[in-house]
């Protein structure tokens, strides 16, 4: 068997291995198993037939996630989305007292460790992303859904409010919570060697 065939097979296997990760991402956004499966399937097929457009320096996972982004956006913005909109955002609390402990009575930080810096090498970046992923998965589902709409799908705040049927104030809180929680999580778990 030629090296070329080996390489293609290995690529296919690697792509397929990311199926569960993609499915999880799609489910959070679409709230519908069949629709999520479809989006993932289309993404995998697009990836397998587009192997040549894969840039070596990007990770396969990042590449797959960026392909799926447009599939998800299409579905979310299409008329079909009514059937996926079941998730309710009025049954969660928009309380931010979880962060009270970080500040003293005058609103001043109680404590702040030295800042971490950007990962510098390829290995360091991989390690950083691993921690970042773990922190992202710890976000509560609805917080995550709103945050990923903003950060991954790059939808403007106005449109997110409409899509999720929430007020500007509530979206502001969800995004704030996500960022505060991520910073805290990275601060506790990411330290350069």
């Amino acid at each position: 068997m030629s090296d070329l065939v080996d390489e293609a097979e290995e690529f296919d296997a690697q792509v397929a291995a990311y199926r569960p990760v993609l499915l999880k991402l799609a489910l959070v956004q679409l709230q519908d198993r069949a629709a999520a499966e479809d989006a993932v399937q289309e993404t995998l097929l697009a990836a397998l037939s587009g192997r040549k457009s894969f840039r070596r320096e990007a990770s396969i996972k990042t590449w797959l996630i960026s392909i799926m982004k447009y599939k998800i956006l299409d579905i979310i913005r299409s008329k079909k989305r009514h059937q996926f909109a079941a998730s309710k955002f009025d049954d969660i609390d928009y309380d931010i007292s979880a962060f009270d402990g970080l500040f003293d009575g005058t609103g001043c930080w109680r404590d702040m460790k030295d800042p971490w810096t950007d990962p510098e090498s390829v290995t360091e970046r991989a390690a950083f992303f691993k921690v970042l992923e773990a922190c992202l998965t710890r976000l509560p589902e609805k917080t995550s859904r709103a945050f990923m709409m903003r950060e991954w799908l790059e939808i403007e705040a106005n449109e997110i409010q409409q899509l999720l049927n929430i007020t500007p104030g509530h979206l502001r809180i969800l995004l704030y919570r996500a960022r505060m929680q991520l910073r805290l999580c990275m601060d506790m778990n990411w330290r350069r060697g």
């Binding site: 320096e57 810096t117 950083f128």
Partner: peptide, 26 residues
């Protein structure tokens, strides 16, 4: 304290951008 925190936030935002691959920003 805030100058430290803001460096942390900027690193976080930058790495999120890279992670979600806004193509050319890498």
């Amino acid at each position: 304290l805030c100058s430290k925190a803001s460096v942390q936030f900027q690193v976080l935002f930058r790495q999120l951008r890279t992670y979600f691959d806004r193509e050319a920003s890498n």
